[in-house]
């Protein structure tokens, strides 16, 4: 593995211009097409965006689990597990290589959106949990079991020893998701990717799961990449936010800036679609006019222009916006923006 020096040694994961395309019979779907963001160690980054914006595809690309006919066709995923500032570009590794397998599980854990679908229907929780334990520690069968039960107890599952031998379908939705979290955490990963882990759950259970993730984060100091389309969740847990639209990160900022001084009209629209910033979780983003276009029909110029309330004819549909650094740690892809330094000079 080639080691690449990081620009910022405090960054655990730096994704640059990542592109995953699906080569289908109907044509090429550019599900992720130049997404960039980074996550500092120990922090929580929320990836937000409407359904179909490429959040899950991007998460799989980071995990090296892109499914055919999809392929990572460009960009880099710089993984810097130690503070020495030396990073590995995961995008250059084969998804099934030994090097990647050593990272999946013990280094980067993932929770999938549907806890039921992510559990085998014919294997016990324990069978699946044990894999996670053993990916980190080469321990005896008995100790694997003990550690597995411990992991279930830590995520607040009552009677963990009994649950260990049960099947996924015997558990409630909330318990299933807790079991999935236990599986990811049993390997003590440095980065936890959670893909809409609370979407399928009722509000009370959601709140419980969010608290659990926050508690575990403060306990272990792990870094979290949290995917959601729920801004209420973002307000609760995020340190920084990356807003995705049609496979690109259109705005990247810390959470306060994203909520109070968003630079991109899409972020503004998302916020306006939220009844109140203090609203409870569970609100869906629905009220932005129009629909997310299919990646086949990506609009020319700025892909958001047909739905944009600041649309400027003659500009927005003619040029693709670059990322504009509007302030330190705050960037947005909008043609109406001016870079921070230039704006100050004018």
């Amino acid at each position: 593995m080639r080691q690449i020096p990081m620009r910022e040694p405090d960054t655990l994961l730096e994704v640059r211009d990542l592109a995953t395309h699906f080569f289908t019979d109907e044509g090429v779907v550019r599900a992720v097409d130049g997404a960039s963001f980074d996550i500092p160690r120990g922090k929580t980054l929320c990836i937000v965006g409407e359904s179909g914006s490429g959040k899950s595809v991007m998460a799989r690309a980071v995990m090296g689990l892109t499914r055919a006919p999809g392929r990572v066709v460009g960009g880099s995923v710089l993984w810097c597990p130690d503070q020495d500032g030396q990073a590995t570009d995961l995008a250059t590794l084969h998804g099934n290589s030994r090097a990647y397998r050593a990272i999946r599980g013990p280094e980067i854990g993932m929770i999938f959106q549907e806890p039921m679908a992510a559990l085998s229907p014919v294997h016990t929780i324990g069978t699946q949990l044990a894999e996670s334990v053993r990916s980190r520690h080469a321990v005896s069968k008995r100790e694997t079991r003990e550690r597995g039960i411990e992991a279930l107890a830590r995520v607040g599952i009552p009677e963990p020893a009994a649950r260990y031998d049960q099947y996924g379908f015997e558990l409630s939705g909330g318990m299933r998701q807790r079991a999935m979290i236990a599986m990811a955490l049993a390997a003590e990963p440095k980065l936890l990717i959670a893909d809409e882990p609370t979407t399928a759950l009722d509000v009370t259970t959601q709140a419980g799961i969010l608290d659990l993730i926050l508690d575990l984060q403060s306990e272990t100091g792990m870094t979290v990449m949290f995917i959601t389309h729920d801004l209420g969740v973002v307000a609760e847990i995020a340190d920084s936010v990356a807003v995705m639209y049609l496979g690109r990160v259109v705005e990247h900022a810390d959470v306060d800036t994203a909520f109070h001084a968003p630079a991109h009209p899409y972020t503004e629209a998302l916020l306006r679609a939220l009844p109140s910033i203090h609203a409870k979780t569970g609100e869906r983003l629905a009220a932005i006019p129009g629909m997310v276009p299919h990646p086949f029909a990506r609009p020319a110029g700025c892909a958001f222009h047909p739905r944009c309330h600041r649309f400027r004819p003659g500009l927005c549909e003619t040029r693709e916006p670059e990322n504009v650094p509007v302030a330190p740690g705050h960037g947005a892809r909008c043609l109406l923006l001016k870079p921070a330094r230039k704006a100050a000079a004018e």
Binding site: F112, A117, A118, H123, A187
Partner: peptide, 21 residues
């Protein structure tokens, strides 16, 4: 199915995940 990916996400090799699940 997602449970195959979930197994790979726990560090199983592709072949192992396929034969086990």
């Amino acid at each position: 199915k997602t449970y195959v990916d979930a197994a790979r996400a726990r560090g199983l090799s592709g072949a192992h995940a396929v034969t086990k699940y």
